[in-house]
């Protein structure tokens, strides 16, 4: 055990660094996470919302098209806990079915920005020089257009109607958000890749003659992806909120798609007399956004050695 060590260690002065037990960051982070109430709450909410989105039928026996105008804007009751909206549709059922479109937009947009921004950031960070300059400047240009404003332009330029298929409507919103959201991921990926690229083990692999693509897939991506995933998780919450805002403005999702944003938009006109129409979908939306933000926050805190 007695390795010759120089008498003057170059460690930091802080006494807590004399910790001798070796623990890996990943295991440490997990150990931290499962004891964190915010992580547990957000993880439970996350699973809950995803389940609702995948199998809404589990939570309600009604279909969102089961509406009776006679029941229009009736308040919450034993028969309908959340009351009815202006078309006489059950607000509870609509809130349950609304999860799918909202979460789909959020998750698909996140996947989209991860693909565009991730690839662009990795390429820019890894190859550097001219490639980096071109990608970074392109990112600057897109970054110059605020997300909501840009998405608005895209969606106004491609108006849809009631006859547009649901998936096309959702796809348009996803594309609009992803087209403007990718520079954020690109920048984070790029700086993360830059850090990893200069790490000793990457330099070593490079000196041993490892090729570009192989290097990227084997060393760069696995080691730089953690902060990117965290930001993307938090961003899902933002995308869901952005979808709701666009739908509220009337350019996002269109009926007959059922979404929280649309439900809130409809409730707007009746907020004085029938606040329940606003309350329930708005609470579901907020809770869902909160879940993603908290989840990402908790993971980031656990992964950030500086905060330990």
């Amino acid at each position: 055990m007695a390795d010759p060590t120089p008498p003057v260690a170059t460690q930091a002065e802080a006494p807590e660094t004399t910790e001798t037990a070796v623990r890996t960051l990943g295991r440490d982070a997990w150990h931290d996470l499962v004891r964190k109430p915010t992580f547990i709450i957000s993880a439970v909410l996350f699973v809950f919302f995803v389940t609702i989105a995948i199998v809404p039928g589990l939570f309600t026996s009604l279909s969102p098209t089961d509406c009776a105008l006679a029941l229009s804007r009736q308040g919450p009751s034993g028969a309908a806990w959340f009351g009815y909206d202006n078309n006489g549709c059950d607000v509870y059922t609509h809130t349950i079915y609304g999860a799918r479109a909202s979460i789909m937009v959020g998750v698909l947009t996140a996947i989209g920005v991860l693909l565009i921004g991730g690839v662009a950031g990795t390429v820019a960070g890894f190859y550097g020089r001219a490639t980096d300059t071109v990608v970074s400047r392109l990112g600057d240009v897109f970054f110059g257009i605020p997300l909501l404003l840009g998405a608005l332009i895209v969606l106004v330029s491609f108006p849809g109607g009631a006859d547009t298929p649901q998936l096309v409507t959702i796809g348009k919103v996803v594309l609009a958000l992803a087209a403007l959201g990718w520079p954020q991921i690109m920048r984070i990926t790029r700086s993360s890749v830059l850090q990893v690229r200069s790490a000793d083990y990457v330099q070593a692999a490079r000196a041993l003659g490892a090729g570009g693509t192989r290097m990227i897939l084997k060393h760069i991506v696995p080691n730089s992806i953690a902060p990117v995933i965290v930001v993307a998780t938090i961003a899902i919450g933002g995308y869901i909120a952005a979808e709701a805002t666009l739908s509220f403005l009337g350019v996002g999702l269109q009926p007959p798609v059922v979404s929280w944003g649309l439900a809130i938009s409809r409730a707007q006109d009746y907020v004085r007399t029938s606040p329940h129409m606003l309350l329930f979908p708005a609470s579901a939306l907020s809770l869902c956004v909160l879940a993603f933000i908290m989840l990402g926050d908790a993971i980031r805190d656990a992964l950030d050695p500086k905060l330990r």
Binding site: A244, F248, V289, L290
Partner: peptide, 22 residues
């Protein structure tokens, strides 16, 4: 702040308008 961050602006707007305004 976490609560405010997760409620979309148009919901906050509608609710505050309803209570503080109307």
């Amino acid at each position: 702040t976490l609560v405010v961050v997760s409620i979309p602006v148009f919901v906050i707007g509608s609710v505050l308008q309803l209570f503080l305004g109307m």
